[in-house]
């Protein structure tokens, strides 16, 4: 143990700021162990799909290049993926409040690598969520769209959901408790109604519809359905997405700054 200069020189820092796929695997295992996470992000979207997506009164109606059942399947996959990334973002700030990040700060893990691990973990969970919903769709046999659209829409949902990681960070800083998932589940439910994931916005009254178009999931929901539905493209969708991303990110940064004194 007695340190020689040579021994000190041998010591090195890990590559990539301590980032490691093994840690991502441990984080995924943690999430899958958490019953609440599993119910919210994996089971609930499937149940919603089975409830809303198979109703024979409209499921087989045409929707762009596919049918309504496929449309609803995409919505539910988005719901699950967004829950996964929001939850992933929230754990960063919650673990910070719990003191785990302080523990990690006496390791070589850099804050950027830590957030990267968390984002990747969320993405893995999001992918699982999308896959589970799409698999349920395949088994149910109702959703119909060209094969390439299964892949394209699935990828759009998966990647697009990452934007909600910023929302998760923000909420995590606002409510740094272990029960934050319950709050997120409820808020995202409201956002999902606002975004038209559960009920088409065309069913809303005009006033309510305009209000709903201002909620955070609206733009993303329209975008991920666009490959299937086609038709006119509205620039308000990406604008909505970017504006909400800016709001969530600045909110997270604002809370993060207030929080830094605590380490």
């Amino acid at each position: 143990m007695t340190a020689t200069q040579a021994a000190l020189a041998e010591r090195r820092t890990p590559p990539l700021g301590g980032f490691s796929m093994a840690v991502v695997a441990l984080e995924v295992r943690r999430l899958l162990r958490n019953r609440r996470t599993v119910i919210f992000t994996l089971i609930a979207p499937v149940i919603f799909f089975l409830l809303f997506g198979l109703n024979s009164s409209y499921a087989n109606q045409r929707a762009g290049h596919g049918n309504v059942s496929a449309f609803i399947m995409i919505s539910m996959a988005l719901y699950g993926a967004v829950l996964a990334t929001t939850g992933g973002g929230a754990t960063v700030s919650v673990e910070r409040a719990l003191g785990w990040s302080r523990q990690l700060r006496v390791t070589p893990l850099s804050p950027v690598a830590y957030i990267a691990i968390k984002m990747l973990t969320s993405l893995v969970l999001g992918l699982v969520s999308v896959t589970v919903v799409y698999t349920a769709g395949v088994i149910a046999g109702k959703p119909s769209m060209p094969a390439y659209l299964w892949v394209v829409t699935g990828c759009c949902v998966w990647v697009g959901s990452l934007l909600f990681a910023a929302f998760g960070l923000f909420v995590g800083y606002l409510l740094p408790s272990e029960n934050v998932m319950q709050v997120i589940g409820f808020v995202l439910m409201l956002f999902s109604f606002g975004g038209g994931l559960f009920i088409p916005l065309s069913q809303f009254s005009p006033a309510l519809r305009h209000a709903a178009e201002l909620t955070p999931l609206y733009g993303l929901n329209e975008l991920v359905h666009y490959p299937l539905v086609g038709g006119a493209f509205a620039w308000s969708w990406p604008v909505s997405l970017v504006v909400w991303l800016a709001i969530f990110t600045s909110g997270a940064v604002w809370r993060f700054r207030r929080d830094t004194a605590r380490v």
Partner: peptide, 12 residues
Amino acid sequence: ETVAYTAHLFAV
């Protein structure tokens, strides 16, 4: 697992 988590973060 907690110890393994930590171990993955170090070079050695």
